[in-house]
Simulated assay, not measured.
Amino acid sequence: MSDTPVTELSFEQAIAELENVVSQLDNGQVALDESIKLYERGAKLKEHCDAKLKEAEEKVAAIKLGENGTPSGTTPVEGL
């Protein structure tokens, strides 16, 4: 488990750590106290990944396409 604050992780780093947390918990070889810490970290990682995905979806949704189908600008996210 990383000591890096979850908010400082990229999506890729967070998802990799989340996969590691799930693997450790599924293994069942972790002591109860450590399992609780892993679960709490996993919950924070999941929330962070969800937020990063939502942010990316909003950016994609904000792309305006021109008549020929090429990107021509963006729509402010507040307008969505």
Rank of each mutant, 00 (worst) to 15 (best):
E17T: 08
L9D: 03
V77T: 10
G28L: 04
E40F: 14
V77F: 01
E17H: 06
L18I: 00
V77G: 02
A31K: 13
T74E: 11
T74K: 15
L9C: 05
A56M: 13
K46M: 04
L80P: 07
D26R: 15
E34F: 07
K52W: 00
Q24N: 09
L32A: 09
G28A: 02
P76M: 02
A16C: 04
K64F: 01
F11A: 10
K46C: 02
T70G: 03
L9G: 07
T74R: 13
S72P: 02
L45N: 07
A61C: 03
E19G: 13
K59P: 04
D26L: 13
G69F: 07
D33H: 07
I63Q: 08
C49D: 00
V30H: 08
E57I: 13
N27I: 02
E12S: 15
A56T: 09
E8C: 02
E67G: 13
E55Y: 01
G42R: 10
S23N: 09
V30K: 09
L38K: 09
T74N: 09
A56D: 06
G42I: 10
E47C: 08
P71G: 02
T75M: 13
L32R: 09
E12A: 14
G66S: 07
A56C: 05
T75D: 05
E8A: 11
A62T: 03
L38S: 11
E55K: 11
V21I: 15
E67I: 05
S35W: 04
E40N: 14
S35V: 01
H48R: 06
E57S: 15
P76Q: 05
K44G: 02
L53I: 10
S35R: 15
M1H: 10
D33T: 08
C49H: 00
E12F: 14
T4I: 15
M1G: 08
K54C: 01
V6T: 12
L25P: 07
Y39N: 10
L38I: 11
T4H: 08
E17S: 12
L45C: 04
L53E: 12
V6G: 03
Q29I: 03
P76R: 02
G69D: 05
A56I: 03
T75G: 00
E67H: 03
L53R: 11
K54Q: 08
L65I: 03
K52Y: 00
L80M: 15
E58W: 12
P76F: 04
L65P: 09
K37W: 06
K44R: 15
E19P: 00
E19M: 14
N20W: 07
S2Y: 02
C49Q: 00
K64I: 05
